[in-house]
Amino acid sequence: MRSTCCRKGRLGRMMGCLQLVLGGLVVIVSTLSLFKFYSAGFFLNDADICRHFYGMKDVNDFDINALSARVGEVLNQMDNLQLKLESVVQKMEKNKDLGKTNIPKSEYKKFLEEEVIRPLYSAHIGLRQIRLPKVEGIRNSTVKEEPLINSFVIEEIRKYITPKENKNGKVNIYGTERIHNTIGHSCVLMKKELEEYMGYDIGSYCKDDWTLAQKLMINGCDPLPRRRCLTRASKLYKKPYPINESLWKLPDGGNVLWKNYQCRNFECLSSKNPKRGYSKCTGCFEMEKEKLKWVVNTNLPVDFTIKDVLAIKPGEIRIGLDFGIGTGTFAARMREQNVTIISTALNLGAPFSETIALRGLVPLYMTLNQRLPFFDNTMDLIHTSGVYGRLD
């Protein structure tokens, strides 16, 4: 009986200490928020706010709605954290009443890390990333923001599309003072998806979100912004085959991340499997069938062999583009003839781009929604199979 009372007492003291610590952290974050907003003049009278924000030089470039959205995001995070804490405390009190006091320390640690520390850290970062106007009389400099920047809340996107000033501060040889990154209107229309794609911790591992990335690209948000996170590699990764073997040998399945596909190995991708997860490029993961493409005449008027194509301009075809659905077989055939081919590939149901790379070829991760990143009159050859589109 005495042992049970002691355990209940220890649990009560532990919960009391936890509530005190969390309460202190919330008070600190709230105090920092109030101090930051007070220094910006948010607690002045209405007339003073107008003079404070709109009566000074260069303040019209600041979007107050973007600041309001950022503040609302931080407050929502704090509210969600409070609700989680209250529900967990109620659950623990219920377990205590039922005599369930032997709760492992690992559960406390997991709860603190996932449900408390991470949300609190996220709210802290959101607070630090709030951009307040810098106006004369309060600070020594001014700030100007592009209208598109204020459409987003995630700071990584805002940093990406913020124009970068030239190092010397002068106009460069191209007649501009800054460099602009490319984010089109399609990205604004898919704001929720793009913020989910860019919502990560800098320097941590990237999310395994190929499907989301390709959804953005296919709907016109292309090219995607760069990310400052680390891409995970397969834990079963093995050294690739030498180039003289890899061109016509199926790669090792351990070198591919299969999480986002219906199949979990290359054997499953066989053309004999009706549930392989994709419908195009029948047999493209079967090297014996791929070896016959563009080498054997098929008696179709639209098909040409590699020999026929190279005979059009002997010795002049050196570089080209292969746009279509496949695993790089056309590029492999051309490589045997010392012709460099860049292949475009999206992983629509199967690891097409990984297969191309593991064969020792170059996959271009891009759609036709944007102008392809090549100068005019640089391609000797453009090949397409299974896809009909306009190449600019």
Score class of each variant (00 low, 15 high):
332 A>E: 06
271 S>P: 02
189 L>Y: 05
388 Y>S: 09
230 L>I: 15
301 P>W: 08
365 Y>E: 01
243 I>H: 09
244 N>R: 07
98 L>N: 13
61 D>I: 00
259 K>T: 14
190 M>E: 15
271 S>F: 06
132 L>R: 01
220 G>L: 07
152 F>A: 04
355 T>S: 15
281 C>Q: 07
283 G>E: 04
149 I>R: 08
275 K>F: 14
217 M>A: 09
118 R>M: 11
153 V>R: 04
69 A>T: 04
125 I>L: 14
342 I>G: 01
233 A>Q: 09
187 C>R: 00
199 G>H: 15
339 V>F: 12
253 G>P: 01
190 M>K: 13
282 T>G: 12
66 A>L: 06
18 L>A: 15
128 R>V: 15
158 R>E: 06
324 G>W: 03
194 L>A: 10
81 L>M: 15
232 R>C: 04
321 L>E: 00
265 N>D: 13
57 K>Y: 10
48 D>L: 05
251 P>A: 05
271 S>C: 11
205 Y>R: 05
62 F>Y: 14
10 R>H: 14
238 K>L: 11
322 D>P: 02
34 L>D: 06
46 D>W: 12
48 D>Q: 15
153 V>G: 01
303 D>P: 04
85 L>V: 12
206 C>N: 07
202 I>H: 11
44 L>C: 13
49 I>L: 13
234 S>N: 07
297 N>M: 08
63 D>W: 01
270 S>E: 06
87 S>D: 13
25 L>F: 14
348 L>K: 13
224 L>D: 07
211 T>L: 15
236 L>S: 09
119 P>H: 05
387 V>Y: 09
223 P>Q: 03
245 E>N: 10
313 K>M: 06
27 V>Y: 13
304 F>G: 00
12 G>N: 11
358 L>F: 02
184 G>S: 14
308 D>W: 04
291 K>W: 11
48 D>H: 10
209 D>Q: 15
98 L>H: 10
303 D>Q: 07
249 K>P: 00
90 Q>H: 10
161 I>S: 02
367 T>A: 05
59 V>D: 08
66 A>I: 00
375 F>H: 11
255 N>A: 02
105 K>N: 09
11 L>W: 11
319 I>G: 00
300 L>S: 06
